[in-house]
């Protein structure tokens, strides 16, 4: 066991993956000498060289597009997009090319590319540094979209993403980057929880609360407050947004009869809507209340001085729980 921050856990995960497979390349802006703006790749260029840890020109479409070419040649690129808000020049390459290559080539072409991206707000930064673009990717067939909320998952899920033959969007909760946690670095990848599985974090009988990435810690905080009032929340870390592990969610919601879904991204067109539809269908006769959503509002990410009013907090989650309980 090791105590690692999420940043350090991803760094160690990348290191272990690169040690085990010489076809793995890292690409991105400032990932080499600087070690990335969040230092996720710190020290990797020094140890693996400039040919495997590639400082790219400042062109996101170029990074993803050339990663596709490198993957066609047999490499396994791990791409860093510096900030969530900077991914859109590469959107065409990701959605139009990367996502559908296997399908259009009838399985002949495989693109085992991982796209790492810090996402979400709460860091007091200027615009385009706090976005939650996950729904665009989750709505794109051919892409896998996963996100970690703790150090152990950060360490293992990045390795699983790299090992996958599907293109994976790996979303890193930037405001939790420095959150520390235990990492079982002695384990084998086969022992780690599948990256497409949801994870029940607290057992509870009253209401299921489902979050992912940066909101998981908020959900756990809400669960602690609720416990003080004798309300037992079952908190689930969704972990994978595509595919969605319905069996874990359905089992929980069938037990509690209630579900509250939490994410930072705007509600409209978000992951919460997808979950709500599926849970309503799967758990219709067990539900005691409509599925509730606690999300960012349907506005562009606001100036940072009011971001705390935008981001879902424990109070808003508890309000939704209360509404569900009193329905």
């Amino acid at each position: 066991m090791a105590q690692l921050s999420i940043v350090h856990a991803i760094n160690q995960g990348l290191r272990r993956a690169m040690d085990s497979d010489s076809k793995i390349l890292l690409m991105g802006e400032d990932i080499g000498k600087l070690g990335g703006v969040f230092r996720v790749t710190d020290g990797l260029q020094k140890d693996f060289g400039e040919e495997r840890v590639i400082d790219s020109p400042l062109a996101e479409s170029g990074i993803v597009g050339t990663a596709i070419g490198l993957a066609l040649y047999g490499y396994r690129p791990v791409v860093e997009i510096q900030f969530d808000g900077f991914v859109f020049p590469a959107f065409d390459q990701i959605v139009v090319q990367l996502a559908r290559m296997r399908y259009r080539s009838a399985g002949a072409l495989t693109l085992p590319i991982t796209i790492r991206m810090p996402y979400g707000g709460g860091i007091g930064s200027v615009e385009h540094h706090s976005e939650s673009p996950e729904a665009y990717f989750a709505a794109t067939p051919g892409l896998r979209v996963i996100t970690c909320a703790d150090s152990n998952d950060a360490y293992w899920m990045i390795q699983q993403a790299i090992a996958s033959d599907d293109p994976v969007i790996f979303l890193e909760p930037k405001r939790r980057y420095w959150q520390k946690g235990e990492v079982n670095i002695e384990a084998n990848m086969s022992d780690a929880l599948n990256m497409y599985s949801a994870k029940v974090l607290t057992q509870g009988s009253d209401c299921t609360v489902i979050g992912y990435g940066p909101t998981v810690a908020t959900c756990l905080q809400a669960a602690r407050f609720a416990a003080d009032d004798g309300v037992k929340l079952e908190v689930i870390d969704l972990r994978s947004l595509s595919p969605i592990d319905m069996s874990t969610l359905v089992e929980s919601v069938n037990k509690t009869g209630r579900a509250v879904l939490v994410h930072e991204a705007p509600g409209t067109g978000g992951i919460g809507g997808e979950l709500a539809a599926r849970l309503s269908q799967a758990c219709f006769y067990k539900l005691e209340a409509p599925v509730m959503r606690v999300t960012g509002y349907d506005v562009p990410y606001p100036p940072s001085r009011i971001e705390d009013d935008y981001l879902p907090d424990a109070e808003r989650i508890l309000d939704a729980v209360e509404k569900s309980m009193n329905y």
Binding site: Y297, D298, V299, P300, D309
Partner: peptide
């Protein structure tokens, strides 16, 4: 800014949802 100002200027028209 007033927190509720985050809903200003998203659209030209009034949006009931917002």
């Amino acid at each position: 800014p007033k927190p509720s100002s985050m809903f200003d200027h998203v659209y030209a028209d009034t949006d009931i949802n917002l």
